[in-house]
Structure formats: C-alpha cells, structure tokens
Simulated scan of single mutants.
Amino acid sequence: MKARQRDTAPAVPETDWAGTVARAATEDVREMLRAERRRRRGRWFAGGLVVLAVGAVVALLLRTSVFEPVAGDQAQGRDATRAGVDRDAPFDAARPFAGTPAESWADGAAGLVLPEARAVGEFDADEVAATTQLVRSVLVASRLDRKLLVDHDPTGYLGFLAPDAKRQLEPLFADGREPEVQALVSLVAPGSTPLPVEAKVSGTMSTRQGKAGELVVHTNYVFAYAFEPPPNLRLAEAMNTVVVVRADVDYIWRVGDKWTVSSRGLWFDAASGFGYSIDCDAYRKGFLAPVTTGHSVTRRPGEAEPGSYFDPRSPLPPAGGCRH
C-alpha cells in the first residue's frame, strides 16, 4: 500500500451622483482584491503524500523602511529597539547578526538540538534517537548546507527521503516550480550572496506516535541568514542584511508492511511558517533575498513587533503580505 495523503452618506447633488458611485465602486473593487490577496497569502502547507507537494503560500510579514539610503526617524528606531533590533548597531561583515535578536543564537547545526531519546508508542528509544538524528540531517541539508542553499542542488536533501517522497519533490527544484517546495527548503535567490558566516538557528524538535507504523517528528525552528549588502548603500539598521525564516514542519518515519517498499522511510507532512525582512519579489519565486534588493514595504498597525518573528514559541501570525 502506497503512502496515503494526510486527511488531514449624506445625500449628494444629482450631478455628482455618477462620479460618487464610480469612486465608491472602485474602492470596493480594490478592497475585494486586497482581501483576496490576503486570503491567498495564508500559511504554508506542504501536504501531498501521494500527490506532488502543494505549492506553498507564505505569509510575508515585513515592516516599513526596513532599509533606507539614510537613517530612519527616531520614533521608528525606538520601536525597533524595544523589539530587540538595534538600529544604531554598526554593520560588521564578520558579525552581521550583532544588534538583532539572533545575535546570541547557536551557529548552524549547533542550534538543532535533539530531544531526549525515549520510547514513543511502538518505537523504542533507539529507533526514536535514530529517527530524530535523521531529521536533524534533513534540516541541515534543507536549510543550512550551501550545496542546496546556494547551488540549488537538492541531491543531498532528497537522498534522506523515502523513494516515493523523493520522486514527488524532485521536479519542484527546476522550471520555476521552486515556490512549491519553499515550505521545506531554503534557496538563496540568484544574484544574492550570503556572507561567509553560518546561519543562526533557534527552536525545538519533538516526537509523537502517528498512525500505526508512523513516528512523527515535529520541527519548529527559526533560521536567520546574513547577506552581503549592496555596495555604496548606507545601512539603516542591523536587519538590513538579515533574512528570517520560521519553519514548522512535520516529518514522518514510516515502517512496516502497511507501506510499499518504496514508501517506507522518511516523508514530509504538514508545514507552516513565514518569512520576515525579505525581498518579496524573490520570495514569490521561491527564493531568499534581503530587503536591500527589493521594494519598500509597509507593516499594518497592530501587527507583531519584529522581535516576535524571531521567537519560535510565538503563535504563527495571521496572513500578511508584501506591499509596494
């Protein structure tokens, strides 16, 4: 049996009436379009266990004036500092995370700490330990290894998956289909250059029994990537060159005669998350690039302050969007 999909007005003169109606209708249409775009920018979902992974739609939560050719105003600076971002921190290519909440995080794979090995349902402690170690290797390959991150070569990542899962994902790494797999991996946009420092990582991993023959490993991590700034650009704050990705992804280890041989092994399942301080145009194409390469964006009143986007324990925010 192959792996199955998880079931988952005041009155106006008559002469002005036509113009008033036209203006109102135009605003109504614009609001409808904006509402539709907001609905479309829901959380990531990467489901398909027998079908190809569903194209991920990301909630892109960015704020106004994330970079400027000159320093921003003092009120914005005070807000950013309260949220854990120091606008006055000088840029240092050797310490690009200085002045951000990610500054004290572990470097790279050191931030992927395994949970204590213990028996879970039908899986003994040794089997659980082996599975969480496998998932840790998958996270390194999908989020940190420059072979995939920069070179866009998915061979290492796909090699950890069950043959059927690999077959489903492999076509999504080419021909403009990268947005369909971005819930599971990080890909640097062509033309953007990561700094030669490891990404910062914070989060947790946990396990639970799934259906018969399934061990579910839930991963909840935030990855912060540092990029080279454009030449001759005066940076307004520490976040100008940092891209933040939150990824909550379930991986499932499947064993037993319930599954065909080619479906036994590691599968991807439900995924959600968001990107912050990121170039919208690149992200819509499935790639990561800093805001210094894109357009300015706005942050709606009431949206969470930047510091919360660095906290893997915080609730996933409502759908937001890139706004020119």
Rank of each mutant, 00 (worst) to 15 (best):
A141C: 05
P196L: 03
K166A: 12
V85F: 08
A89H: 07
A224G: 09
D124A: 09
A226E: 08
A59Q: 11
V140L: 08
G156Q: 00
T100F: 11
G108E: 01
Y221T: 02
P318R: 03
A319K: 05
I278M: 05
S206A: 15
A117H: 01
M239G: 13
R208F: 09
P154V: 03
L149S: 01
E36A: 15
A304S: 15
P154F: 01
T100H: 11
W44R: 10
A212H: 08
L61V: 09
E31D: 13
Q76I: 00
V185N: 05
D175Y: 07
S137D: 15
T298Q: 05
H218G: 13
D311W: 04
N220P: 07
V197Q: 10
V181R: 04
Q76H: 03
S65A: 14
A289E: 01
W267H: 15
V113H: 10
G294A: 10
A106E: 06
W17P: 01
A80D: 04
V188K: 01
T8S: 11
S65V: 05
F268I: 06
Y157P: 10
S277I: 03
L52S: 15
S263G: 12
T20Y: 04
F45P: 00
G320T: 02
L60E: 02
E303S: 03
P163I: 10
T260Q: 06
Y283M: 14
D124N: 14
A129Y: 00
V57E: 13
R299I: 00
D250M: 11
P163G: 12
W259F: 15
E198Q: 12
R43A: 13
V255N: 03
D164A: 15
A174L: 02
V12G: 01
L233G: 02
D126P: 00
P229Y: 03
R37N: 11
P171C: 08
T260W: 01
V54G: 06
E68G: 06
R254S: 06
Q133F: 05
L169C: 10
P10V: 11
S202K: 13
R78C: 05
L195T: 07
P13S: 13
R146I: 03
V120D: 04
P10D: 11
V58P: 02
G294L: 09
G48V: 04
R78A: 14
T219Q: 07
A56C: 03
A224E: 10
D28L: 14
D92V: 07
A98Q: 13
V185A: 09
T298E: 04
D28V: 14
R40A: 14
E122Q: 10
P171R: 06
P69N: 01
L112K: 04
D153M: 06
Q74M: 10
D88Y: 13
L187N: 05
A270N: 13
W259R: 05
V217K: 02
R82P: 02
C280P: 07
G275T: 12
E68K: 00
G307C: 08
P154L: 03
E27N: 11
E122R: 09
T64R: 13
V261D: 13
A9T: 14
L158S: 12
V216P: 14
E178V: 12
G47H: 07
R136Q: 15
A25L: 14
L172P: 01
V245E: 14
A25W: 10
F310N: 04
E31I: 12
A110P: 08
Y157F: 15
R146H: 13
V185R: 04
